[in-house]
Design a protein around this nucleic acid. Structure first.
Lengths: 289, 289
DNA sequence: TCATTTATCTGACTATAGTCAGATAAATTT
DNA sequence: AAATTTATCTGACTATAGTCAGATAAATGA
């Protein structure tokens, strides 16, 4: 059996088993769709985020939420900052209901393990984790995005937060060499987002100068590291740079960002003498295209 | 994250991804249910088998099949041996359609691999195979069955066929020490079946004598070996023997059946001098309960 | 200010995926 | 031969899971 056939076999078996479990343990009173939505609300969420995450029609979500509201499980309100955006949160009754669903769902998962031996269980859980990570990785796609878009801004916020955490001092983008939205928008530059089911989980930017390009804002969400996303983003930025006819790429990085340095080295970047006054940089790299 | 949480995370991710793929690549013209049914027919099948395999309502299958018939994809007939049983097979047009679905499904599976690196692909396929095997194993359940039932007879037929293949000579149950249905039915004995989604994938029997029990007809389908099914069947037979108050279990086996011997030894059976005239046996085992 | 965009809601549909209670006919048991 | 069982079919439902075309109101941009 070749790989493709194995994957298809996997798909058949797994959907069958999980579907059976879900029907048995959830989907009792409420429809499966409503249960999933209830789960996804968690500590409260914007409706537009839920919609995107579950990939559902706006009208459909609206109706599902109203049903849940009538059952007294959720309450709907609007954001103060933007009254168009609806925000759902669980009522105390809803919290109790989610806890119950959680327990049932736990029982369903436990039923998968129950007939197996200790060794089989460990092997199952480990392989599941691998499959899950890789499926997530395979569903991530890259998109060139406007650096001012909501998703891009979210990414950059996370990026700055993380730099502040990992650097010895707080990170202040205004002190750092600039990479403002207008510099990362064609034709001055490019901003690449990595999207996982509508959520931004990584980014990277290329700032084009006349005779070289600068790689900026490389970031991957902690939950998605080790999936090769950084590699994909960097490859895409290099592709864009080549397309622009740039012959040289430069970047600078902080000593705390070891994974980033490993990535650059594996892509053939050579460490060079400092070529900028970037206050947060300890290492400077170059690569000829 | 504990094992249960990991399993739930897996379930969420995987159903989401596979569902998306199926919708994209199949379910185009035809409903997903009809596509699955079409797939399952393969080289032709009894309707009752399809129904059980897919876990569908009789009326529902009937209607789905009629739709496929109207589309000229399948033809329905009855078995000669039993005119109640309907038999579906694909028309030439149906064969072509299945081939097309196959291709689309292949493309869907390939789309999962496509964004991954070589290493990731190998790891994904391997882990998928493990998960699949173990999920199948975990959904197998044991049932005490009548040795004359259709499923039991199917098992025994496979068992005899396999013995004939693996022994140096053909296996003829009438020459072997008897284990006829009436001897394996309570109170004289027990017949245990391992069921995987309504299909029998293993069996084992206990023949009770006044002062000892005999383990007979231990068999596991080739497709399901290494899942611990033999262990589970043997454990169940030992449980039944203990419940009957039997203090000793005996069994004999052929030298070609190495896995079986390993199983018995791992359960604490000791090889003893021949205690029977079984012509197909080379090894005799005993265990005190 | 006016046009456009965004987020949501509503009403009117449709398709899918069933369920359930008989009816029917062949096979099997008594 | 009559009663029961088995495999299927049919008609009449129901629930789920959407889709799609506007309508509405807030926010944003020109």
């Amino acid at each position: 059996m070749n790989d493709i056939a194995k994957i298809r076999q996997f798909n058949r078996t797994v959907t069958h088993h999980i579907g059976a479990l879900e029907n048995e343990f959830l989907g009792r009173e409420r429809s499966l769709g409503a249960s999933r939505l209830l789960f996804e609300i968690g500590a409260g969420a914007e409706v537009r985020v839920l919609r995107e995450r579950l990939g559902l029609d706006s009208g459909y979500v609206s109706r599902l939420l109203r049903t849940l509201e009538h059952q007294g499980l959720v309450q709907l309100g609007s954001l103060k900052e933007d009254a168009r955006v609806r925000f759902v949160s669980l009522t105390p009754k809803g919290v109790k209901e989610v806890a119950l669903l959680d327990k049932l769902s736990d029982r369903g998962a436990a039923a998968m393990l129950e007939p197996l031996s200790e060794k089989q269980r460990a092997s199952l859980v480990e392989s599941m984790a691998t499959v899950e990570r890789l499926l997530r990785a395979s569903s991530i796609n890259l998109a060139t995005s406007d650096p001012g878009s909501r998703l891009a801004q979210q990414c950059l916020t996370h990026y700055y937060e993380e730099l502040s955490e990992r650097f010895e001092m707080a990170f202040d983008p205004s002190v750092s060499i600039s990479a403002a939205p207008e510099e990362l928008r064609p034709p001055q530059g490019y901003f690449v987002l990595a999207l996982l089911q509508g959520e931004a989980v990584g980014c990277g930017a290329l700032k084009c100068h006349t005779d070289f390009g600068e790689i900026k804002r490389m970031w991957v969400a902690a939950s998605c590291r080790g999936m090769g996303i950084g590699r994909r983003i960097l490859a895409q930025l290099e592709f864009l740079a080549r397309e622009r006819g740039l012959a040289l790429l430069r970047l600078e990085t902080n000593k705390a960002l070891l994974e980033a340095q490993a990535l650059y080295k594996s892509f053939g970047y050579q460490e060079v003498a400092p070529f900028s006054e970037e206050p947060y940089a300890h290492h400077w790299f170059e690569k000829e295209l």
